[in-house]
Design a protein around this nucleic acid. Structure first.
Length: 309
DNA sequence: CATCGATGTTGAG
DNA sequence: TCAACCTCGATGG
């Protein structure tokens, strides 16, 4: 899935075009029929992302909690925001659908975002296995392939939140940094593993994990207890920076100070976008040493053995 | 066209 | 520690 930044963008999409509206909620696939019936006809009152968890709040203290997992995705159509409009994070009401009258946009939001073929009529027929469809008078959102899609009461929401460490978008004060530093430094577990532990810090996935550790030149195998306060603070600050940039840009650009040409290249090609992620066997962009890859707790870890000590 | 692997988590054993 | 979840782009024939 979707590391932390994309879920925040999805929440923004819902905030702009669904919150305040009455929703017809259904489960075209059928696997969420009972849950959909609980929410059907209610007004959406808020949309919020905490790390990779999405919470859609409806009237009567009901919440839809969604986690996209590895390959879940939301498809939006109708009056929705384009990538650029979402990046403004403001009140720009510009939508694809409003540009050129009868053409209605379809926009897919998962790890990548992309415009799909225009739809001919509204609402469009569900494509594939749609677990949940949320339909308003002029917008529709289809959810496919989620790991979690559950109706929660406030206590259930709190229970889910309690499992999460700080998320720099929601927790931006010194307290959050302090919590992160403590969470890291009390554990005798490799920092590469701790960054993926959502109770230590929420929202980091495999790509951000590899890139953050390279950017701070930290050995992924170094135990949390041996990470200095300075290193831990730097990791938190850098994560906060990358996450805010990811929400703004709609993609993970983890290399700083690129030339104009390299920046464009990075936007085009995923292989030119990262320092170490998915670059095993290729030369380190800093020192030329071969980037290594190994399994760490079931996920692939990428790092430069020379620069990260 | 078949197969593989992926940005993630859960629960069984 | 590993399979399951059940989608889809990339890869190979």
């Amino acid at each position: 899935m979707p590391e932390g930044h994309s879920v925040h963008r999805i929440a923004n999409q819902f905030s702009r075009h669904f919150v305040g509206k009455r929703c017809e909620v259904s489960s075209p696939q059928g696997r969420f029929a009972a849950g959909a019936a609980q929410l059907d006809g209610k007004r959406m009152t808020a949309a919020r992302a905490v790390a990779k968890q999405l919470f859609l709040e409806f009237e009567d203290d009901l919440f839809l909690r969604v986690h996209l997992g590895l390959y879940g995705a939301w498809d939006f159509a109708g009056v929705i925001s384009s990538a650029e409009a979402l990046s403004e994070d403001g009140d720009g009401e510009e939508s694809l659908a409003s540009i050129g009258a009868p053409r209605l946009a379809r926009y897919r939001m998962a790890e990548q975002e992309k415009a799909e073929d225009p739809i001919e009529s509204f609402p469009p027929d569900p494509v594939g296995q749609v677990r949940v469809r949320i339909l308003t008078e002029d917008t529709v959102a289809d959810l496919r392939g989620p790991t979690a899609c559950v109706v929660e009461d406030p206590a259930g929401v709190q229970k889910a939140l309690d499992k999460l460490g700080p998320d720099p978008i929601n927790d931006d004060g010194p307290e959050a940094e302090k919590t992160f530093v403590e969470n890291v430094r009390k554990r005798n577990v490799a920092i590469g593993q701790l960054l993926m532990d959502q109770s230590v810090v929420a929202g980091i996935g495999n790509i951000y994990r590899a890139e953050l550790l390279f950017r701070q030149r930290i050995d992924p195998y170094k135990p949390g207890k041996k990470i200095t306060v300075k290193q831990a603070k730097a990791l938190w600050q850098d994560w906060s920076k990358l996450l805010h940039e990811g929400v703004r840009d709609g993609l993970m650009l983890t290399m700083d100070d690129l030339s104009e040409a390299d920046h464009k290249k990075a936007l085009r090609s995923r292989t030119d976008r990262h320092w170490v992620y998915h670059r095993q066997g290729e030369p380190c962009r800093v020192c030329g040493t071969e980037i290594r890859m190994a399994d760490m707790a079931g996920r692939k870890l990428y790092w430069c053995p020379k620069d990260q000590k």
